[in-house]
Amino acid sequence: MEYHRRGALTPNHTRRAWTIKAMAIIISLAILTACPEMAGGQGLEEAEQHIRLVYSRLREAEGRGADVKEAALKLNDALTLIREAASEPDASKREKNLSRALTIIGEVEASIDRLIEEGEARSRMRTATLAISTSLIGLASIMAYIYAPRAFWSLWLRARRDWRVKRA
């Protein structure tokens, strides 16, 4: 006759515990496979986080004078792909969409520094143009102050050169 301590596991108990654990793992895997949202959820979440980060950088770049129109439209395409991936039941298509979205986001992110440089150059050019325009306006105003009265009176006299003054 065998005696076991209270709470200790018999070989039967151990086998049953292992069976329960194995079943739990199989059920979890089955649920993960059946639920595309759960399986791809992490990837989607990462992509969403990444897109928000790149969007923030894009706004920062725009604030520094960068022309972000094309980059923003590309980011919108990536966003559409992420949304499509989220509602795609086919795992391979979902992965494909996500991968394309991540590629686009990466491209946009890589282009931000160049956009900032171009924006800063454009901003410098704009400032220079503005400075030149303002100087020209100032110079032209001074010249107009000097020459305009003389030109006006000479034109006035020329227009009336055939006039005769009569004694009233």
């Binding site: 107009a144 020459y147 000479s154 034109l155």
Partner: peptide
């Protein structure tokens, strides 16, 4: 007179 006209044009364009 030419100078004055040119100056006026520069002013408007500026």
């Amino acid at each position: 007179e030419v100078t004055a006209v040119v100056v006026a044009l520069v002013l408007v364009a500026g």
